[in-house]
Design a protein around this nucleic acid. Structure first.
Lengths: 331, 331
DNA sequence: TTGTATGCGTTATCAA
DNA sequence: TTGATAACGCATACAA
């Protein structure tokens, strides 16, 4: 592989000059420039970005931590990051933490030792203090998480509003007896969605009933169990709002197993607008979580702060949107 | 950020010694080792992997090219790669090509200039010659693609067998009138799956009929259209085999729209075992494409050839498996 | 077992 | 507008 040195020899100029035409950041006469370009071409020269990084103290890469590489949410966030980064000629180094604290920390350490110019982290297994300390070493933006000391660098979804919109969609179709299958309470997203649900109820003078609440864990199985538990209780309902789409799917399966005709006998609304939501039957009405946009925005914060791209507007909180499909029947 | 030099000063030893304890590849007395370790700890030293790479001509990273970051197929392949790589203490640099030749080539160029130790490529937009020439520069393995000159470094699925198994599953449930909705003919996977379908038919003395064939493009919409086209023709059928799960979903939606009761009135089998397959109603019987395993194996080839890990068995072609769910009724 | 010296392929600071 | 030359942080052959 040809080096800048060989290029300089062939072109009959100095190392410095070759470097200048590569980065075209200094004046070079048209004549020498073409000479150099020609030499590069002739040698099939490709810059060694490792060497560039060492010398310039810039890797033009941003490190990303996600839980898994598969899965809709992460996929779209990564897409948002990667697309935006590519437009800026930067690139992405991805690591996974599998929602395990030790793995997440070691992934972060790795990204730092790899000299990423900045970090985008999706994590809930690592504590606030650690994140704050990291952010003092290297520009860091957090997606789907809020840490007060880093508020400017946190991107999140207004989950409360999302929960509100979901339940409101049910109410507007005439439903009053609405059950709720929640995600784990210790997750803020999950908690906020429930709060939104309750606000929608209250605003329409519907009293919230404990009988109509089931606590799941965001996995499909608990949606299934949840529906069965809820129907075992005396309080009847005509609709269910679910903390996410997986559980909505589970509830749909359980309901169908009990012989219900969907959506006629039971209306359901999900949350996340997961990839499979439109493949469900009936196609699931749900809340879009703006995953792609959040990834894009995380990148924008970095482009602005680290790579000094101006005229970029930052938005830290995203508004969820209702995606209307066919899983809600008019009552 | 502390450097190896500062560590050596604090520990009162030479640069080389510090380097030795980092890589523990040479004898260092226990006494000096602890001295060095202590100094590292005190300074919060983290090795600069960029500098390591430049000096050692090894980046411990493998470059990966996929079409998109979201989507089940790519997700699982990347998972397979990343998991295997992490166990070996190597890491992954991911780029996307969006199925566009120019973008794919520039992504590959990028990975090379980034001095990856090896490449794992998922591409169908770039020609064989280009891939062969790349593979002479840097160890390259191809997933889901076959190039004769690089046969040892190609990982693929036995799509013909998959197509065979899918249709055979239908036949074994008593179906004889089986329609087929195919992917684009120019894609080898798609073509091979069809050939497998035809073999299953032939083996059971069922004549293949053009009336029962529809050519789609692997997207859900063409599954929908396909079903409508097929039912418009005079030849009747009780089952459909689809080139992939998306089209199967489309066909299911179309059938249901025509008032059919699934799977009683129509049996369907898909291909790929896409993430949403188990969320469909009825849950889709399909063919698993071993995406995760193919990603893992691609990595293994590199671990063996590039990183010299021995005792790794290589398998270039994967056997698809039938995943039985509820979308096939007994006739 | 430890230290010295050189090189990896660039960028960047000076001079010229 | 160009050219020497010193970093960048580490690995490694060679000496000691």
């Amino acid at each position: 592989m040809a080096t800048i040195y060989e290029v300089s020899e062939l072109a009959g100029v100095s190392l410095a000059t070759v470097s200048r035409v590569m980065n075209n950041n200094a004046k070079v006469s048209e004549k020498t420039r073409t000479k150099v370009l020609q030499a590069m071409d002739e040698l099939g020269y490709r810059p060694n970005s490792i060497a560039q990084s060492l010398a310039s103290n810039r890797t033009n890469s941003v490190g990303v931590l996600v839980s898994e590489l598969h899965g809709g949410f992460f996929g779209f966030i990564m897409d948002g990051i990667e697309n935006e980064l590519r437009l800026a000629n930067k690139h992405i180094i991805i690591t996974t933490g599998h929602s395990d604290e030790a793995q997440e920390k070691s992934a972060i350490e790795f990204l730092i030792s790899r000299k990423c110019d900045a970090l985008i982290l999706l994590t809930d297994s690592v504590d606030d203090d650690y994140l704050v300390s990291i952010s003092k070493t290297i520009p860091t933006v957090l997606v789907n998480r809020k840490v007060d000391e880093m508020a400017q660098n946190c991107i999140s979804l207004n989950n409360e509003l999302g929960g509100y919109l979901a339940t409101k969609a049910l109410i507007e179709k005439g439903h009053k007896d609405i059950a709720y299958i929640s995600g784990p309470d210790w997750k803020v997203d999950s908690h906020d969605r429930l709060v939104g649900h309750q606000r929608a109820l209250a605003e329409h003078d519907i009293t919230y009933q404990n009988d109509l609440f089931y606590q799941g864990d965001f996995n499909e199985g608990t949606g299934f169990e949840g529906y069965n538990e809820l129907t075992a209780a005396p309080t009847k309902f005509t609709a269910i709002a679910c903390g996410n789409d997986e559980m909505a799917s589970g509830a749909m399966k359980a309901a169908r197993k009990q012989g219900l005709n969907l959506p006629k006998d039971l209306s359901i609304v999900g949350f996340d607008n997961n990839m499979f939501a439109s493949y469900l039957y009936p196609e699931l009405t749900t809340i879009d979580n703006s995953a792609y946009l959040m990834g894009k925005m995380a990148t924008d914060i970095i482009l602005k702060n680290v790579y000094k791209q101006d005229d970029i507007a930052i938005q830290n909180v995203f508004e969820p949107k209702l995606i209307t499909r066919n899983s809600i029947a008019t009552k």
